[in-house]
Nucleic acid binder design. Structure first.
Lengths: 230, 230
DNA sequence: CTTGTTGTGAACATTGAGAGAACAATTAAG
DNA sequence: CTTAATTGTTCTCTCAATGTTCACAACAAG
């Protein structure tokens, strides 16, 4: 997943955060990697961010956060139910990594109810939802509460939480969050036909809808689902 | 699922990532597989990606990630992912010594696939699943992978994970894990009628089944549901 | 025979990395 | 408010490392 330099930088940031709790500045990273220009650091940081290893606040000084360790990119063996001291050995394989383990559960923003007639972006930062990491792939995710029954035949019920991976692209037949004419977000199957875009509900009571490519903006695709029974 | 070469490549990538955290380049993989051209590697990589074993960023150097293992005993790939915490005090975070998140996360045992013809108890202690506490109420819970489509009309699909609260009792109309004659566990609506117990599927293609009270043992009731999309 | 997998080689395209400078944003100080 | 210091961003060059694609061939399985 990483190149040597990316790996090196990540470990440096990680170490710095662990020992002092303060992110290194670009200048410091430049020195640490023995570079003579900050632009190289910038590119590496961007690469790490793109790959989901770190998170940062743009235009903020020393605002780095390590999200992942290079080594746990792969699979982990089945984890025994907690509380045994011998899971230290299991942990020993994964290098010490502390500030934000977040290996099992991820907090993702909950953007409100979908099909509520409001573009997703307008609802940013309301609340959040904890989600098992195993449910999600890579990338940035957010959650929406499903409103309505247009997708019941796909097993998506009113009140369910849809876990959505933010993306602008999708393949035909995927369930996506589509923003229609910039004003209404809905969860539907998306298919392309003759240069048009068709949104298919999963409910015989609803009709497929066809739009021009310009009328539809894909805001994410369905990555998981979460439901509570009372 | 995989050819010999594909398997070999996958294991090599996996090993490389685990030991160094750095993806091998095409050149390195070429050497490892004793090939004389990178195009072969390219084809294998594409095959692995298509089959969902690895993920990659196209046109990026050393950007491989293993999602699944060939001999994987059936647990999900465990992939950490960028968290999207909305606290903007990343820099102020104090490094913690305790790796344990101590969040509102619960590890519950995953007991295998339900309706597999085996009593739940027999499958104890295989693996586990991390679940946000908010999804569950009080009490002891466990998880089952749903097999079959007998509950599709209740929005419960094949492959979903059912989160079950362990209990011996239930109210009419609840979805429960019922052990039938001590040998088969199924997920169904449970209703009592004239001293008998009726298990209702949520699928018109299946028939309700009626048992004597002695033939049915309630092993838990459905408390939540998790689903992954690929 | 047809299909799918594997192997080879080479041309080609893209990214990664480093340097240096100018510019923008943020913060603290006067 | 203005200024200066710190820090992050972007740009253009340059070269090396790496990934992509194509055509052609061998081989095995069905």
């Amino acid at each position: 997943m990483l190149t040597r330099k990316q790996h090196e930088l990540l470990r440096f940031i990680q170490a710095r955060l662990e020992e002092s709790g303060i992110s290194p500045s670009f200048e410091e990273m430049k020195e640490a990697l023995d570079l003579k220009s900050k632009s190289g650091v910038h590119r590496l940081i961007s690469a790490l961010e793109e790959r989901g290893f770190i998170r940062r606040l743009p235009n903020r000084a020393r605002a780095l956060e390590v999200l992942r360790q290079p080594d746990d990119a792969g699979i982990k063996p089945q984890r025994p139910v907690p509380a045994n001291s011998n899971d230290d050995s299991a942990r020993a394989r994964v290098p010490q990594l502390a500030p934000e383990p977040a290996n099992d559960v991820i907090e993702i923003p909950l953007h409100g109810r979908i099909a509520a007639g409001v573009p997703i972006e307008a609802l940013e930062g309301q609340s959040s939802l904890a989600v098992p990491a195993a449910l999600l792939g890579s990338g940035e995710h957010y959650a929406l509460e499903v409103s309505g029954d247009s997708m019941v035949d796909a097993g998506i019920l009113d009140g369910d939480f849809a876990l959505v991976k933010r993306t602008n692209t999708c393949r035909d037949g995927e369930i996506v969050v589509a923003l229609v004419r910039g004003e209404e977000a809905t969860l539907k199957y998306l298919r392309r036909e003759n240069g048009m875009v068709r949104l298919d509900p999963a409910n015989a009571a609803y009709e497929p809808q066809i739009y021009g490519p310009d009328e539809i903006e894909v805001q994410g695709k369905l990555a998981g689902l979460l439901r509570r029974y009372h």
